[in-house]
Design a protein around this nucleic acid. Structure first.
Lengths: 343, 343
DNA sequence: CTGAAAGCGCTTACAG
DNA sequence: CTGAAAGCGCTTACAG
């Protein structure tokens, strides 16, 4: 076993070839599993393999990339990698991609379409083999360029209407339905819905679903009990609003539209000394397993982060594998209802 | 402005040279800002610049990497990118690195040294220019290889004793001292300390600091009131233990060693109907701004994530810039005491 | 002031 | 069964 010296140059394929007394191409074929195909003798193949092991040789991926035109790197552009939701997605994507021999370069748009566009450009220049993007309005043009160049692209969690890009999205309507059916089947009558005044499509889809489900269960529009908190609420203010909401509307159940809302909901409820679900049933949309840290009794509508992440990688791999432009797929993933403790 | 066609080959430096009627080297010099240095005429330089713009030319970074031996990519290896603490660090590192013209490839060890070693190997093969690593026991040998090859490496958040590697670490002792001084200065007498039975050096340093500070304030060892929860506690079990601890030891203040402990602490305290800080003062070590979601009255010892991340990038850049092996630096970052609401 | 040429480390037709 | 050669897209001594 040859020990590397400090400033020793990395051993190259050519070095191996020289030591083995064969041509570089022979080494390349052996290492790429084309020995049989190229009808290289077993003895030569074995010698090459033994040498690469002894010398600790591994191919320079940069050179391979330049030659083959494939970098084995995927670009992941999310809103904010420090957000636990995106961090969890990134993690699963990483694992899946690594298993397939791909590395991930990730970047955060910070909800700035200008920055998002710059990131796309940067990743395109560094020759990533494909993109997984959580897009923002304002990125349409730059992403159309990618499509034009036949670069594999998948949208995740969000999409841009009008762009013909494969996507993996959560079925928000179905998720709310599951949570609401859970409550309605158990006879709850006055189900409040707490949301936040955000322009995001997700929030609007969820609120719409709440209203649809109530209507489908034959409730009158007066049954719609919605608390719409302002964006960027103050913690104490919001807790008070939720408390008022619960008491004022005499709720027997409450549905929180996001997990951050759920956190302050739990605090409001604790302050009211309500038993869960004895006095009040709770369902909360949970984007990242946050409620596993919380006491039982809270039912959550869990985003299937793994499924979403794996779905995105899968759709991307299809495109990369195909080489040619495929028809776009729009994959909807279903949330999972998790009932913790007694109902 | 030339529009790219679907399967049109990317425009290369050579293409620009041909169109400009100059040699490729001339284009290269102009684009790399060496026009003056190479005494290229302004008219030629302008023509080249105009053409690159019109053709939308950008250099192929893979080719640049192969040629220059520098990839402009940094490898970031953390325990788990889905953990908000590491996600926040990753985010800051990303921003800083991007500003310096570097991209980040990140990977998670999942606390598995075998996986950690494989990741180091993988990143080394893909020619990253430097490593920022949250190391694990068992990675010593593989990291020594990196040092031997004079690859820039920085440890962040953790270190491996005996390895001569630059590092950025939190000053845990000082952090606990700040929190404890805050309480002791305000006259609190019975200060409990809640920790968890983890082998991590951080936890042990924090507990040691708690004990040291009490001793330095002249308290007898009987003043040490420590609740050591088992690793992987059940939520309800832990909440009960904290409640017992507060009542049993007649605490007037409590110090939580991590933010996850703090979360269940807040729940215990709410259940006991204690006013904060009227009945009980709380200080909590907060690794990732979690408590900004919580009600005021909780004082936190905040990890300066930004400082830590920027410090790591900075130490790495020093090494990359130097080209030769530098003396190692061990940077300690100070936590910040954040007092929310009245004391 | 500018160009021709070598070379980074691979892969892959092509020719024996 | 194996080798010589071209080339991926750049950069950088070197030679005018």
């Amino acid at each position: 076993l040859v020990k590397l010296h400090k400033s020793m140059k990395r051993v190259s394929l050519k070095d191996i070839a020289t030591k083995a007394g064969v041509a570089p191409s022979t080494v390349s074929f052996v290492l790429n599993g084309k020995a049989k195909q190229m009808r290289i003798s077993d003895s030569v193949a074995e010698k090459v393999l033994a040498l690469t092991k002894a010398e600790g040789y591994t191919p320079n991926t940069i050179a391979v990339s330049l030659r083959t035109g494939r970098s084995k790197v995927l670009g992941l552009i999310v809103e904010d990698i420090a957000n636990p939701f995106f961090a969890a997605l990134a993690k699963t994507i990483e694992v899946r991609a690594n298993a397939l021999g791909y590395r991930i370069v990730y970047c955060s748009t910070e909800n700035d379409s200008q920055k998002g566009n710059d990131l796309v450009t940067m990743l395109a220049h560094s020759q990533v083999d494909g993109f997984i993007i959580t897009p923002l309005p304002g990125m349409e043009k730059r992403i159309e360029d990618l499509l034009q160049q036949e670069r594999p692209v998948v949208f995740m969690d969000r999409y841009l209407p009008g762009l013909d890009v494969s996507s993996v999205l959560l079925d928000n309507h179905e998720g709310v339905r599951m949570g609401m059916d859970h409550l309605l089947n158990r006879g709850y009558q006055r189900i409040g819905f707490v949301t936040v005044d955000l322009k995001q499509v997700q929030m609007q889809q969820r609120q719409k679903a709440y209203e649809d489900v109530l209507q489908q269960w034959g409730r009158s529009p007066e049954a719609n009990l919605v608390l719409n908190l302002p964006f960027a609420y103050e913690h104490l203010f919001a807790v008070e609003r939720v408390k008022e909401f619960i008491r004022g509307k005499k709720l027997d159940a409450i549905f929180f539209c996001t997990n951050y809302l759920g956190i302050l909901g739990v605090e409001s409820i604790t302050q009211l000394h309500l038993k869960i679900p004895g006095d009040l049933a709770i369902v909360c949309f949970d984007d990242h397993d946050l409620f596993k840290l919380y006491p039982p009794g809270i039912t959550t509508v869990q985003q299937p982060l793994g499924e979403m992440a794996n779905g995105a990688v899968e759709l991307l791999m299809e495109q990369i594998g195909a080489g040619t432009k495929l028809a776009t797929h729009h994959k909807k993933v279903k949330a999972e209802l998790i009932v913790r403790g007694s109902t």
